[in-house]
Design a protein around this nucleic acid. Structure first.
Lengths: 237, 237
DNA sequence: ACGTAGAAATGGTTGAACGATCCTGTCAAG
DNA sequence: CTTGACAGGATCGTTCAACCATTTCTACGT
């Protein structure tokens, strides 16, 4: 099955915009993250180092460093002598992730009293962007913008570490969607609810905003759990 | 200054209790983490791969994978062509870390309404342990136990990801103490305040518990900032 | 059919090599 | 004496080829 093409796969050209002050393993990790998030490397796909190393034009050692980073980020899992594979989200993971989201995002809403006005304006910009994308029926982009809104909410807390944590968690959450690329438009349904949360927040209704956000997260969690269950069921057949 | 002992440093024996189902790089990362947290590798210490690889009895490649993990965890920093060094906490880092702690721990207190009684009993156990250690003037152990209490508080939220995040953040915070091994006993001063928070939590006084915890974190942050400032000043001379 | 022994594939680790870059100390010109 | 060029040496980043360990596949004999 592993077609040993005598002609090596064309090494993807190095992106000129790749961070040049960076080491190879990091840029390779970026490339892999990218591929995973766009579903090109579906959950469960084994990450064979020899193959990927050739494909990306780096040595096996470098690629292994990159894969180790992905494992550390929870985007891949590792088994001794069986290598790494793209992480497959389980129901427990979804609950775990949403517990974390509830913690951080709800706290951010409560703490937003201390946030400067321009930070709240940034929130509004994000939602407006998402609405524009949704109106144009660019569902994929709408999902990305919606996520950007939540990212901005977290950013209100002013901790780069929390921002990073949210990013990696969101990346994991995307694994659920990666199995159903066509379902991405379901995210658009949540854009109006982003708007509600945003407006309540700006008008000072923290408690209502928090309640709305909590409901939002509960509903979203239910939906993602269903997706994961469906994916597992589809895999059985 | 880098004494090139012609006789190679004795490779530390492999711990028999090292997770055997694990790959070498992970166990090496554990060893390095250990060394850093106990101050054996002080902040600013360069992590020279050739030297460390020999010392730990692994190849340079394996060691580099381990170091990359530490960098990813924020325990080390990396500069291209200059290698990695143990992270030196700056004031901004301390603010960042405490913003994250406030977010998570305060949320945990508020959310503890939904926590089962035995989870709260666990909190009590941790504090009692810390008190015992403090009474015996084992300050180092008291600090560890106190941290265990806060860890248990976070655990109330029921997210393994948040637990992990708290752990890595706490490990970063230890970098501040690593420069002042003798000051570790100052942590003991906080044990009685842990007791207050714990009791308020168990008696249902969430709001008071949250207020006490917030005050706790504010004071602690101030103190750690002073430590970092002092360390920076001491470095100038 | 079934278990089993090889064989092939893959993973884990090592050691050496080579170029790139940084650092340091030297030396000569000003 | 200061300054700057410059030559080593040290370290880093990366690659490559090899080796053993383990799994997985396959084909064979029963």
């Amino acid at each position: 099955m592993n077609n040993p093409d005598s002609v090596p796969a064309m090494p993807e050209e190095i992106h000129a915009d790749a961070p040049q002050g960076d080491v190879a393993a990091d840029t390779v990790a970026d490339r892999l993250r990218e591929r995973i998030s766009r579903g090109e490397l579906a959950p469960g796909t084994p990450l064979r180092d020899a193959a990927l190393a050739g494909e990306l034009g780096v040595s096996r050692n470098t690629l292994r460093e990159a894969v180790r980073l992905l494992v550390h980020e929870g985007l891949a899992v590792h088994q001794l002598y069986k290598g790494a594979a793209v992480k497959r989200l389980e129901v427990a993971d979804v609950h775990d992730i949403y517990a974390a989201r509830r913690c951080i995002e709800l706290r951010a809403v409560e703490e937003s009293v201390y946030s400067p006005a321009e930070a709240l304006d940034d929130l509004d910009r994000r939602v407006t962007e998402a609405e524009r994308a949704a109106a144009a029926e660019r569902w994929n982009e709408a999902g990305t913008c919606s996520l950007g809104f939540h990212r901005a909410v977290v950013h209100l807390l002013g901790s780069a570490r929390l921002d990073r944590f949210f990013d990696t968690t969101a990346a994991q959450l995307r694994l659920a969607f990666a199995e159903f690329p066509q379902e991405q438009d379901f995210q658009a349904q949540y854009v109006p609810r982003d708007r509600v949360v945003c407006d309540l927040l700006r008008s000072g209704g923290r408690a209502e905003a928090a309640a709305a956000l909590r409901q939002y997260l509960d509903d979203s969690e239910r939906e993602v759990v269903d997706m994961v269950r469906a994916a597992a069921a589809a895999r059985q057949s």
